[in-house]
Each structure stands twice: as structure tokens, then as C-alpha cells.
Simulated assay, not measured.
Amino acid sequence: MTPAVSQVLADLAGRVARNAAPNIPAADRAGELGLSALLLGLAAEMWDGAAEILAQENADLRALLAAGAKVWGEDTRRRWLDALSQGRDESLRLSALQSANGELKVALIALHAELERRDDPEARALESQIWRALVAASDRRRLSGSPV
């Protein structure tokens, strides 16, 4: 799990406060400063693209749920997926995008579990789409210095 930028910044605030003490050995302080610089760079990179990443992922998830609503057999779940797929991101605030993303992922997990129980061509095709979307979401979150 990737920590949220806010968590990284809170950790860095603690590191800065601890390293301001005069009794910290120079080698320890240098190591902490190097780690802090690295984390600040990574946080800056993630912060810059976070809204775009979440908005794109939410759109992708809604498209998958719309497709899932067409193949789901049970009526209540089909209506649930359809309602979620019709939603839209009302705000570009990260907290709002993350909240919507969490709700959409819960529905995707339910859909994926249903598809794995089935053995028909529609289910297999949609399951493949889900896996491609998950790989694309992972690729979007890859940091520039990532070796993979």
C-alpha cells in the first residue's frame, strides 16, 4: 500500500522536529536529512498527479461497473452497479476523489468475485477487462524512479 502524501508529510514533520535537537549525532542527522529529502521528492511527484490519477481511475471503475451491471444476474446488485456507474466526481478535492474511489473499489471487488464464480464468455471477457484496468491503475501510480 502506498502511503498518502499527507501521511508522508506528517512523518517528515516528526523527523524534522526530532532532528532539530542539538544532541543528535551528525551522522544520524545526515541520514535523516537524506531520507527526508528523498521522501519530499516522492511526495511532490505523487501530489502533483494525485487528482488526475484518481479521476481517471474513477472513470475507469465506473465503466467497468456499467459493463458489470449488464451481465450481473441478480437485480438488486445490478441496480447498485448501475447507480454507481452513473455517478461522477463532483469535486477534485483529493479526499472526495479518494472516498469515491473506495466506494467504487468495493463494488468492483463484489463484481470481480461474481465473475470468478461464473464460466461464461461474458464473465471471462469482463474479468480480463478488470485485470487490464488494475494493471493500468498500477502503472499510473508508478513513481518516476521505479525500477519496474
Rank of each mutant, 00 (worst) to 15 (best):
A13D: 15
A13N: 11
R15D: 12
V16G: 00
V16I: 11
R18I: 01
A20H: 03
P22K: 02
P22Q: 02
N23E: 14
I24W: 00
I24T: 06
A26Q: 13
A26V: 12
D28E: 15
A30C: 02
G31I: 01
E32C: 06
L33D: 15
L38R: 14
L40Y: 09
L40C: 07
G41Q: 12
A43M: 11
E45V: 03
E45C: 02
W47Q: 14
G49L: 03
A50Y: 04
A50G: 02
I53K: 10
I53D: 12
A55E: 07
A55W: 01
A55G: 02
E57C: 06
N58Q: 06
A59F: 07
D60Q: 11
L64Y: 07
L64V: 08
A67M: 11
A67G: 15
G68S: 09
G68A: 10
G68F: 06
A69S: 15
K70S: 14
K70L: 12
V71A: 07
G73I: 00
E74N: 07
T76S: 11
R77N: 08
R77V: 04
R78Y: 04
R78I: 03
R79W: 08
W80F: 12
D82Q: 15
A83N: 14
A83V: 10
L84R: 13
L84Y: 05
L84K: 11
S85C: 06
S85K: 04
Q86T: 01
Q86Y: 00
G87A: 09
R88K: 13
D89V: 01
D89M: 01
E90G: 05
S91F: 01
L92V: 00
S95L: 03
A96N: 01
L97D: 04
L97I: 03
Q98F: 03
N101E: 06
N101G: 08
N101L: 00
G102S: 05
G102M: 04
E103V: 01
E103W: 02
L104S: 05
L104F: 10
L104G: 03
K105A: 10
K105L: 14
K105Y: 11
A107D: 06
I109Y: 07
I109R: 15
I109W: 08
I109M: 09
A110Q: 14
E114N: 12
L115Y: 09
L115H: 11
E116N: 12
R117G: 12
R117Q: 14
